[in-house]
Design a binder for these strands. Structure first.
Lengths: 299, 299
DNA sequence: AGTTGTCGTTTCATGAATGAAAGGTGGAAC
DNA sequence: GTTCCACCTTTCATTCATGAAACGACAACT
């Protein structure tokens, strides 16, 4: 029965008190005049105090209103401390991006493209992820290989990604059969198998090899290093394979591994200024490299 | 686009932070768990800060959350100053009652019945009023002679009121015709005519008198004093006339002036604890004197 | 005297916020 | 291994808050 006064009403009161009326407070508070009218009546009721003399000229503070203004200004000073705290340079906003292993590597290499600009946004990359993470805000953005279908998530298509077989120059000189179908039976293979669900590329490889890959690793960097060191052949997305000067593509693009990349975020986070900024930069970066992703830049 | 954080969310944050989770904060904040969940996500988004590590055990503050808790506690201390200010004894809540002139007089005489009790409610009586005043909060309660029909007002019926002709003992000994119909042509009259719309009793008197009343006044006290001094006859509601030892009723009750008294308040004010308290006391006072109002206690 | 402008309030359609109920998760108890 | 419990999140029907548009009041201007 005894309704409490609302702290947000106090913030609105400051705007009305200083403006001398509702009309001038609309700008300062970003709330409409009818709403301010109701909120001021509500505040008076819940505080059991008459704060304003209302006239056609606007709202004039009563003596009680003047006293409340003094007290509200103390609240406001403390609220400004919070604003200051959040805008403190050490408190740069942080956007977490969950992406597949190879995509994470790509982004890491182009991180300067994402960090540029006036606002000091920090970026966390979480390599490997599941969908549940965005709803729980374990990440703000996800780069996925399919459109989001869960309620509450929004997505935009980025690029198409192609995969192919790659081996180092040295390896391929030693084993010329790497360039044809004998590669599956006569060459050593390196497989990338992170924890969690089996990657499509790993499943594909498992189908075509007569025996288990010679080297299986959960770390994409290790897989890449092993390939560069001539330990065997491996399947890579073209945006990684074609970008490596020391790797040579050994096959055409693997049709069954082709997919689209989607940038996914929580519906609410789309309104977040920092998440929005980073989204735009990721989209620009990846769309600007669409040919690399599409396997059109074979080295 | 850059949404501001909500001061009320901060108050809810305090509850969640101290409770270590949503469940314990429900009681402290009087807000449901789903709403608290959404409000905490909203606060994190608008501050661009992760405040909680969420687990099945509840919400544990992050290091940023601990810092915000410290800042929020300063805001809370200021808010407590406001609570203290409104509950300060010098700031006793005040309820304004708008009532007709005679009803105001009746209430003034029984004011002790309304002022008793633990809570120091101050009462302002505004004698004479129009309906617009309750919507504009010029009064919290109105005692009216008809049911409220304007949207936003609520009413409860109190008592039925009768009117009659009264004269002083002295006057009636000098003019025995005061006791019969010759009173309209052979006696002097005193009329009560306050500013504003013509009162029903004044209109009635105007219809039956052959000439203008000898004494017309806008002050009910002056009218009453004049009658007591033997200046003439007047029409009074029974709850005033019968309560005066020196006045004698000279007629039966005047059927055409009979009406109900209603206690009217603004819909919102009904939830105000002080207005509610005073409403109940007024209802008790008037219903406890229903016979006096109804003219059944002729002296 | 009539018109214009400003301010606050009222009306009402719309969208947002809320909370009851249900579901999901994971540790504790048996 | 199964069941229970506590907590948070999701669903969805309902309620409530909001703001655009309109209205009322009144002072200023012509």
């Amino acid at each position: 029965m005894n309704e409490r006064w609302n702290w947000e009403d106090l913030r609105l009161f400051l705007g009305v008190a200083r403006g001398g009326g509702l009309a001038k407070a609309v700008g300062a508070t970003q709330v409409s005049a009818p709403t301010l009218s109701r909120r001021m009546y509500s505040l008076e009721r819940t505080l059991s105090v008459t704060l304003f003399d209302r006239s056609r000229d606007g709202y004039e503070l009563t003596s009680d209103g003047v006293e409340l203004l003094r007290l509200a200004e103390a609240v406001e000073r403390d609220a400004f401390q919070i604003d200051r705290w959040t805008s403190n340079v050490d408190r740069a906003p942080r956007v977490k991006i969950a992406a597949g292993a190879w995509t994470s590597l790509f982004i890491a290499r182009h991180i300067k493209d994402l960090l540029g600009g006036d606002d000091d946004i920090a970026i966390d990359i979480i390599a490997g992820t599941s969908q549940a993470d965005l709803l729980r805000r374990e990440a703000n953005l996800g780069i996925r290989n399919r459109r989001p279908e869960i309620t509450g998530l929004a997505g935009q298509r980025l690029v198409q990604v192609e995969f192919a077989v790659y081996g180092s120059d040295a390896f391929c000189k030693t084993f010329p059969q790497a360039g044809d179908d004998r590669r599956f039976s006569e060459c050593d293979w390196i497989a990338f198998a992170p924890r969690g669900p089996v990657l499509p590329s790993a499943a594909w490889l498992s189908d075509v090899l007569l025996q288990r890959p010679r080297f299986v690793c959960s770390s994409p960097n290790a897989v890449l290093e092993a390939a560069l060191a001539g330990a065997g052949l491996c399947i890579l997305p073209c945006f990684i394979g074609d970008a490596e000067a020391r790797l040579r593509r050994q096959s055409g693009v693997l049709d069954s591994l082709r997919h689209d990349q989607w940038l996914v975020s929580h519906d609410d986070d789309r309104r977040d200024r920092h998440v929005s900024t980073v989204s735009k930069k990721i989209a620009k970066l990846m769309r600007g490299n669409r040919d690399l992703f599409a396997g059109k830049l074979m080295n």
